[in-house]
Design a protein around this nucleic acid. Structure first.
Lengths: 185, 185
DNA sequence: TAGGATAGTGACAGCGACTGACAATATGTT
DNA sequence: AACATATTGTCAGTCGCTGTCACTATCCTA
């Protein structure tokens, strides 16, 4: 195998995050990012489909982790339980990534174009969850619906967890699940 | 008041839809759209923020209708019930808009960039619902969560309704609500 | 150790989305 | 008829993104 190019990719991601938080998304140019990473603008677009994507790397890997966790859940679990099982299993991963995702969140918070991209990332994760449920024998429409509900609950629990990190994610998930039951009856 | 400019806007929307379905989103140029509407490219961007937005007009109006419908719901209704009340109330509107939204859906179906925009439109609606619940005295976190759940249920019911228009939307909503209860317990 | 296959990069030209600025025109008011 | 206001045309320019071709760095094999 020839030269890897992964260092360049990493530098591009780093440069993207730094420039976005220093000057904002709009004021940052792809040529500028490339220059800071010591490569050409053309190389930027060889690694990332567009200017936004450099901030959202590893999402498909995360999707695969979630799908496998759903598949690994005990067969007697209900669809939603299986999803929660998967969510609980990624808590250490989320914890570990927090120092990187936190500054990213601040950038996203004041950039509509990036928020839009976040939504599609979440939608992709949801599709992944739905497919994982399908493999467990859940009917198609139900799987998609359950994935939506599960993802919404996960997001709700994660928000609470970010605001109150003293309690662990599992507990927040349980609380959100209870709230879901309360709401839906 | 000087000249209205609303006819031009309408022609631009029409031209956008037609060209997108004839040649696809990518192959259609904003200059081309403007030309078909008898206007300059610059004028296109005075009416719409970007190339996608011309397809999604009236969504903020729809959001207002939903918010008012939530506000008009009987005060003893639970958050989710209030949302369902609003969803049921817009059924005739959806029915009426169907001849326009149906061809649009086909265009969206094979255009990732447009799907991404749909997600932000739905997110906007969800925020609107959440705000409406806030005004009913629902606590903030709960309101956002309920709006998410409600919107997901509405989307599920709408999918079923599009596949089976013989049953009305209210019935599909009731069935989806039952499924939600079944899933969450 | 030389030679070739493979993957990554640079250089360059070009299209299309989108914006700022200023002048021109059409409508409604006094 | 003069004026105010909203809309449009024109023009120039920036930036995101792509196709193409030549070049180079790594790894495998003979």
């Amino acid at each position: 195998m020839p030269r890897s190019g992964k260092e360049a990719r990493g530098r591009l991601q780093q440069a993207t995050l730094e420039l976005f938080q220093q000057q904002g998304y709009d004021a940052t140019t792809t040529a500028e990012i490339a220059a800071r990473a010591g490569v050409t603008e053309r190389t930027f677009f060889r690694h990332f489909a567009d200017k936004r994507e450099a901030l959202f790397d590893g999402e498909e890997a995360f999707r695969d982790i979630l799908r496998e966790a759903v598949a690994a859940a005990p067969q007697d679990m209900s669809p939603l339980e299986a999803l929660f099982h998967a969510f609980r299993s990624v808590e250490p991963l989320l914890q570990r990534n927090r120092p990187f995702t936190e500054p990213r969140q601040k950038v996203i918070a004041d950039t509509p174009a990036l928020q839009e991209r976040v939504l599609t990332k979440i939608a992709n994760l949801t599709v992944g969850l739905s497919n994982a449920l399908l493999k467990r024998g859940v009917e198609e429409g139900t799987a998609a619906f359950a994935a939506q509900i599960g993802m919404a609950t996960f997001a709700h629990a994660t928000r609470a967890w970010l605001a109150d990190p003293t309690t662990d994610l599992s507990a927040h998930l349980a609380k959100s699940h209870a709230e879901l039951r309360r709401l839906s009856t």
